[in-house]
Each structure stands twice: as C-alpha cells, then as structure tokens.
C-alpha cells in the first residue's frame, strides 16, 4: 500500500480505497444469513399460527391475513417501546426487519425519541420518517398496477 500525495487526487483516492478495502472488517455473511433465516422463519411461522387461528374462528381469508398483520404490528411496536426490539435485531438483522415487524419498528423508534418536540410536530411527524417513504412507494406501485389493469384488462 502506498498513497502518494504527490499524485493527483483521483489516483490518491483510488490507492486509498484499495488500502481501506484491505483493512476494513467484513461482516460475517454466513452467520448473519443464518440468523436472518431462522428468526425470519420463526416470525412467519408464528404468523401462520395466527392466520390459522383467525381462519378457524370463521374469518374470511383476506380478513384473517389483515388481522395477522395487526397482531404482529402490535407485538413489534410493544417490543420497540420496551427497548427489546433493537437488541433482537442486533443479531437477527433482516430476520426482524423484512417481516411486517420491521415496518412497525420503523414507525415507533423515531417517534418515541421525539416526545420532547411535542405530540404534533414531534411524535406525529416522526412516525413517518421511514414509514412515509414505504407508503409512498407502496401506494404508487399499487396505483400503477390498478391503472395498468384498468387500461389493459
């Protein structure tokens, strides 16, 4: 490794990037992937349990799915409030972020830090720091889907 400060900035930057690539720690991809698989799988299995329960209670399929989401969102929001969610996510990573639990966490976590900024511009606004973009992209994609279906069905 040799960053030559007499060389033009672009070459220095390239040399330095090569050097940092050697030194920077690499995440343990395999361990992280196993954690994500197992925890994500468990959450989905638990979700399946709720889904079956709602179906058995006589709810139609779609409503059962919606109620399952509601229950998981409640649990994730509660665990975030208790300060446990981030401790689980430290190991589970995408295993708790990719399920709907991650969406709930992404709403509560920024909002609960904003209490000192008030209930409207603090908590109310920060609920949507990350959830806002999720809804924007999700709703636009759904709208486009509906529009294309309307035009070409």
């Amino acid at each position: 490794m040799d960053v030559d400060f007499t060389k033009p900035a672009g070459i220095q930057r390239k040399q330095y990037r090569d050097f940092t690539d050697q030194i920077n720690p690499k995440p343990n991809v395999l361990v992280n992937a196993i954690w994500a698989f197992v925890v994500g799988g468990i959450i989905c299995t638990v979700g399946q349990g709720f889904l079956n329960a709602f179906l058995a209670a006589g709810l139609p399929v779609l409503e059962s799915g919606a109620m399952t989401a509601v229950v998981l969102i409640f649990i994730a929001a509660f665990l975030t409030g208790l300060g446990v969610f981030d401790d689980i996510a430290k190991y589970a990573g995408a295993g708790v972020i990719v399920p709907i639990t991650g969406f709930a966490n992404a709403m509560v976590a920024p909002a609960m830090e904003a209490r000192n900024e008030g209930l409207v511009l603090g908590v109310g606004a920060r609920l949507f720091t990350i959830a806002g973009p999720v809804l924007v992209f999700g709703i636009v994609a759904a709208w486009l889907t509906g529009l294309l279906y309307f035009l070409f069905r």
Binding site: P25, F85, D86, A89, G93, A109, M112
Partner: peptide, 10 residues
C-alpha cells in the same frame, strides 16, 4: 433512532 432495529457495521 436508538431503538431502531439496525445492525451496526463492524
């Protein structure tokens, strides 16, 4: 946010 479920990079 401190309670966000993120993994810190090494």
């Amino acid at each position: 946010p401190t309670e966000q479920g993120v993994q810190r990079s090494l």
